[in-house]
Amino acid sequence: MRTRLESCLQSIDRVLLGKELQVRLALTCLLARGHLLLEDLPGMGKTTLSHALARVLGLGFQRIQFTADLLPGDILGTSVFDRESGQFVFYPGPIFAELILADEINRATPKSQSALLEAMEEGQVTIEGATRPLPAPFFVIATQNPVSQGGTFALPESQLDRFLMRLSLGYPARAAERALLMGGSGRQRLPELAPILDHALLAEIQAEIPRVRVSDALVDYVLRLVEATRSQPQFAWGLSPRGSLALLAASRAWAFLAGRDYVIPEDVQAVLPAVAGHRLRERADPAGHGGGTLVQWLLREVAAV
């Protein structure tokens, strides 16, 4: 099972060069049943990553391009009157897919954003009075562009909190970019990717994650981290209980990916920047982007043992 996961990672790494850590975190996020927010400049490989994940894991993929005139119905689907049967027939929207890429989510109006975010939270959608379950697994990768914010609706903190992780891919390293330019990789190779997992296996793995052992000593460490965010003066506000649950779930998935059935402090530290970064703000800059330096402070100062 773990060898399969490792080969998944290797496959994706062949497409997305030099981003092993981000790929591993993205897979961790999925295994922990969380949603992912990718924040990066255009052209950094966000779509490639989503596609590659979908293909390798054998998931149905849909892409929703968020624009200012996108309506909730465009995401969820609408009922259309069928003259022959004399009934309304529901045409499901793009959200009824297993892996959704919500591209440039901050371009849509808050109304459309919240339609997606509600679906993410509930795992089901209610359209015209009928509740329809979303497929399982259901995994959303939303992207947003940190620059050129004109005419966008930034996600408020409450909605950021619903993403398990926030990642940014960043520029590729020199060697990776050279390989890219030489045509050895990139989106062209996407069709070469073969599904390595199937639904059943993915569900099995996801069910395995909560059984990863978390000892008292480790919970103490997580509590120390969370308490530090709540009591230290440089934090504008602390991590929510949802945040601490997310931290623990992600740590478990990371430990599982690393081939262990127990969590060690290093697992927590590995996922902390991605899990906590978008949930924390500096007191000096509460409207800012998030707590890179705060997370570094937590990693450095909070006693790990």
Binding site: P265, Q269, R300
Partner: peptide, 9 residues
């Protein structure tokens, strides 16, 4: 060992 350094690191 720094306070935030885990045992493995």
């Amino acid at each position: 060992r720094g306070p935030g350094e885990g045992p493995r690191a």
